[in-house]
Amino acid sequence: SKIRITWGDKTWEWDGDDEEVWKRILEWARNLGDEELWRHVKEWVDK
């Protein structure tokens, strides 16, 4: 399956939905430097 994140007018996609993928997404969000996006992603990961 895919994980799709839409933020503003951008959309990103990742293949898979296991823990490793979420770790990569969390790292990606942090590297993007958008605090609010990172917080949202972290909330999803922690669920």
Rank of each mutant, 00 (worst) to 15 (best):
S1D: 11
S1W: 07
S1R: 13
S1E: 13
S1F: 14
S1Y: 12
S1H: 15
S1K: 15
S1T: 15
S1N: 15
S1G: 15
K2N: 06
K2C: 05
K2V: 10
K2Q: 06
K2I: 07
K2F: 10
K2S: 10
K2T: 09
K2H: 09
I3W: 03
I3A: 02
I3H: 03
I3F: 03
I3T: 04
I3Q: 02
I3L: 09
I3M: 04
I3N: 02
I3Y: 02
I3V: 12
I3E: 01
R4M: 13
R4E: 08
R4S: 13
R4A: 09
R4W: 09
R4Q: 12
R4L: 13
I5D: 00
I5R: 00
I5Y: 05
I5H: 01
I5V: 11
I5Q: 00
I5S: 00
I5K: 00
I5P: 00
I5L: 14
I5M: 05
T6Y: 10
T6D: 05
T6Q: 12
T6R: 09
T6A: 06
T6W: 08
T6C: 08
T6P: 02
T6I: 12
T6K: 08
W7P: 00
W7N: 02
W7Q: 03
W7E: 01
W7H: 04
W7S: 02
W7G: 00
W7T: 02
W7R: 03
W7A: 03
W7Y: 10
W7D: 01
G8H: 10
G8Y: 15
G8V: 03
G8L: 10
G8Q: 10
G8M: 09
G8E: 09
G8K: 09
G8D: 09
G8A: 07
G8I: 04
D9P: 04
D9V: 02
D9A: 03
D9G: 06
D9Y: 02
D9E: 12
D9S: 04
D9Q: 04
K10H: 10
K10N: 10
K10L: 12
K10P: 01
K10F: 09
K10S: 12
K10Q: 12
K10W: 09
K10D: 12
K10V: 10
T11C: 12
T11A: 12
T11L: 08
T11Y: 13
T11P: 01
W12N: 03
W12R: 02
W12S: 03
W12P: 00
W12Q: 04
W12A: 04
W12H: 06
W12G: 04
W12F: 13
W12Y: 15
W12M: 08
E13L: 04
E13H: 03
E13A: 04
E13Y: 06
E13G: 02
E13P: 00
E13K: 01
E13Q: 05
E13I: 09
E13V: 09
E13C: 04
W14H: 01
W14I: 04
W14F: 10
W14A: 02
W14V: 03
W14C: 02
W14P: 01
W14M: 03
W14Q: 01
W14R: 00
D15R: 03
D15C: 06
D15V: 11
D15Y: 09
D15N: 13
D15I: 11
D15L: 09
D15T: 10
D15Q: 13
D15F: 07
D15K: 04
D15H: 08
G16E: 10
G16A: 15
G16N: 14
G16T: 13
G16M: 13
G16R: 12
G16H: 15
G16W: 14
G16F: 14
G16Q: 13
G16I: 12
G16Y: 15
D17W: 09
D17R: 08
D17T: 12
D17A: 14
D17P: 11
D17S: 14
D17C: 15
D17Q: 10
D18E: 13
D18A: 12
D18P: 12
D18F: 10
D18G: 14
D18H: 12
D18R: 08
E19S: 13
E19C: 03
E19L: 13
E19G: 13
E19V: 14
E19D: 12
E19M: 14
E19K: 15
E19P: 15
E19A: 14
E20A: 12
E20S: 15
E20V: 11
E20H: 14
E20G: 14
E20T: 14
E20L: 14
V21Q: 03
V21K: 02
V21T: 15
V21M: 05
V21R: 02
V21P: 03
V21Y: 02
V21I: 10
W22V: 05
W22R: 05
W22T: 04
W22E: 02
W22D: 02
W22M: 06
W22Y: 14
W22L: 06
W22A: 03
K23F: 07
K23V: 10
K23L: 07
K23M: 11
K23G: 11
K23Q: 12
K23H: 10
K23C: 04
K23P: 06
K23I: 09
K23A: 12
R24A: 12
R24E: 05
R24Y: 10
R24D: 06
R24C: 07
R24P: 01
R24S: 10
R24M: 13
R24T: 12
R24W: 08
R24I: 13
R24F: 09
R24V: 11
I25C: 01
I25F: 03
I25T: 01
I25R: 00
I25A: 03
I25Y: 00
I25M: 06
L26T: 07
L26Q: 06
L26H: 03
L26I: 09
L26P: 00
L26Y: 05
L26W: 07
L26V: 08
L26K: 05
L26N: 02
L26M: 10
E27L: 11
E27T: 09
E27R: 04
E27N: 09
E27P: 00
E27I: 12
E27H: 09
E27V: 08
W28S: 00
W28V: 02
W28M: 02
W28A: 01
W28E: 01
W28G: 00
W28I: 01
W28Y: 02
W28C: 02
A29P: 00
A29L: 03
A29T: 03
A29S: 04
A29H: 01
A29I: 03
A29N: 00
A29K: 00
A29M: 03
A29Y: 02
A29V: 05
A29E: 00
R30N: 08
R30C: 06
R30H: 13
R30Y: 14
R30Q: 08
R30E: 07
R30K: 11
R30S: 12
R30P: 00
N31K: 13
N31P: 02
N31G: 13
N31F: 10
N31D: 13
N31T: 14
L32D: 06
L32C: 07
L32P: 01
L32N: 11
L32A: 14
L32F: 15
L32V: 15
L32W: 14
L32Y: 15
L32K: 09
G33E: 09
G33C: 08
G33V: 05
G33D: 12
G33L: 07
G33N: 11
G33M: 08
G33H: 08
D34A: 04
D34N: 09
D34M: 07
D34H: 04
D34W: 10
D34S: 06
D34Q: 03
D34Y: 07
D34T: 03
E35A: 08
E35W: 06
E35F: 04
E35T: 05
E35L: 07
E35P: 14
E35I: 05
E35C: 08
E36D: 15
E36I: 04
E36Y: 05
E36R: 04
E36M: 06
E36G: 04
E36H: 11
E36P: 05
E36K: 04
L37E: 01
L37T: 02
L37F: 15
L37M: 08
L37C: 04
L37R: 01
W38E: 08
W38F: 15
W38Q: 08
W38M: 14
W38K: 08
W38G: 04
W38Y: 15
W38V: 09
R39T: 09
R39H: 08
R39I: 12
R39K: 14
R39V: 08
R39Q: 13
R39P: 02
R39D: 09
R39M: 09
R39Y: 07
R39S: 10
R39L: 12
R39E: 10
H40F: 15
H40G: 13
H40Y: 15
H40Q: 14
H40M: 14
H40L: 13
H40K: 14
H40R: 12
H40I: 12
V41E: 00
V41H: 00
V41Y: 02
V41S: 00
V41W: 02
V41I: 14
V41R: 00
V41D: 00
V41T: 01
V41Q: 00
V41A: 02
K42L: 13
K42H: 07
K42V: 12
K42G: 03
K42D: 04
K42W: 11
K42C: 11
K42S: 13
K42I: 12
K42F: 08
K42Q: 13
E43H: 09
E43F: 07
E43I: 07
E43W: 08
E43C: 13
E43T: 07
E43Y: 09
E43S: 09
E43M: 07
E43G: 06
E43A: 10
W44G: 01
W44F: 15
W44R: 04
W44L: 15
W44E: 04
W44Y: 09
W44T: 05
W44A: 05
V45K: 11
V45G: 05
V45Y: 15
V45F: 15
V45T: 05
V45P: 02
V45W: 13
D46Q: 10
D46H: 05
D46Y: 05
D46A: 11
D46C: 06
D46I: 07
D46K: 09
D46W: 04
D46F: 05
D46R: 04
D46L: 06
D46G: 06
K47L: 12
K47G: 12
K47C: 04
K47V: 12
K47T: 11
K47Y: 05
K47P: 03
